[in-house]
Amino acid sequence: MKDNIVVILCKLEKIFPPAFFDIMVHLAVHLPREAELAGPVQYRWMYPVERTLGKYKRFVRNRARPEGSIAECYLSDECLTFCSSYLRGIETRWTREERNVDRWLEERSIGLDVFSQRVRPLGVAKFVTLEEKVFTRARWYVLNNCKETASYLDEHYQKVSGESSLHIEKRHEAEFERWFQNRICGSNAANVSKQLYDLACGPNYLVRSYKGCIVNGVRFHTTECEQTRTTQNSGIVVRGEHGTSNIEFYGVLRNILELRYPGPNHVYLFECDWWNTGIRTGMQTDQYFKTVNTSRTWYESDPFILASQASQVFYLNDIKLGGSWKVVQKMTHRNIYDIPTILERDNEEEDQGVSGEVHQERECVGGNAITVEANNEDSNLL
């Protein structure tokens, strides 16, 4: 880009009049060099400063004394902000919830992982009755993706494979739910947990449907909900198995389902449309972008994933290929930090005060404490 921009401007000078080439057009010559020296522009642009200046302009109430109005309003705002840090029980700028908070107030230390998803549904629930084939597939996906049922799945698979070697996978999927219910709810009911017993009893046939939800701080909307919106929150990516390899499945969110089990237990499922990336014309990857073809669907009989398994992506129109080709764009959401796991330090580093604790944004750790460091030679002076 740094080499080509000069040639491009020279060619444009043959077409446009000299008045076209103002300082903004000339600025394009310096942008590549600035990116090399200072990095991405979002870390050094002036938009935060301009927003702050706009806030100070709104402080003006007496146009004859604008500086005095800004100074007085700024001092009042600082005083109220300082006092609000000592208030409890009311909403202040320090206690205000984030826009995409999931409001997960109950932390379950003991329970099934499928019943402990951090999901906050949005809007009014719509009660629907699924087709028998779809409802059976949803129940099987919950049982097949619960960590606590892994041993039962292996036991039943060995039982089915020992009976016959024909259609083992199909018979395992079709017979496991009934076998699991008889195994848990029978004479062994007293030896299992209450939540595992509720899972074996199965969900209610009346399912709740939502058009949006917040999962682990990320907002999702269905494609139907986005028809009247200019924003996009329906892109889904999840890692899964296809044959003997692990790949990424790309699709869009079609529906959000809540399966109600006995007691306060419920499971949130995402019903998705998956793009067929298993063929050569389904996905293209180059040095910079990954593009998927959204004209062909895949895994129509297996549309479900757990809400906690989903990650969000955005689809942009591919101006090079055109048509139904979309460029996949992955992003890191605000206030969500992918902090790497800190390995165990040596004993020597632990003695020096190296801590492996990870803190969230705005978290105050020992703000009122004063730490005094002293060498061994000066320890007798303290």
Score class of each variant (00 low, 15 high):
F289A: 14
R99S: 04
A200K: 01
E34L: 13
Y86S: 14
P203D: 04
N145T: 12
Q42G: 00
G240D: 14
I110A: 13
W140M: 09
L9F: 03
G39K: 09
W325S: 09
R296S: 06
V114L: 04
D286E: 12
A28S: 04
V25A: 06
L31Q: 05
N265G: 01
M46R: 00
K326V: 02
L143E: 06
R171C: 06
R120E: 02
T92V: 09
G240F: 07
L75E: 13
E78C: 13
R183I: 01
F249G: 04
W179G: 04
E98A: 06
R229C: 03
H359G: 03
H333G: 10
N4V: 13
C73H: 10
E148Q: 12
H167C: 10
H242V: 07
K330C: 09
M1L: 13
T371Q: 11
N246C: 09
D102N: 10
K55R: 14
S187H: 11
R108H: 15
L343S: 14
V237S: 11
G162M: 07
C272Q: 02
F16K: 13
A174S: 07
A28D: 00
T228L: 08
H221L: 06
Q312V: 01
S295W: 05
A19G: 05
N216K: 11
T95S: 10
Y299C: 09
S308W: 02
Q117V: 07
Q329M: 12
N145V: 02
N317K: 14
R260Q: 13
T81K: 08
V237T: 08
R96D: 01
T371Y: 13
L130D: 01
V313C: 15
K57Y: 12
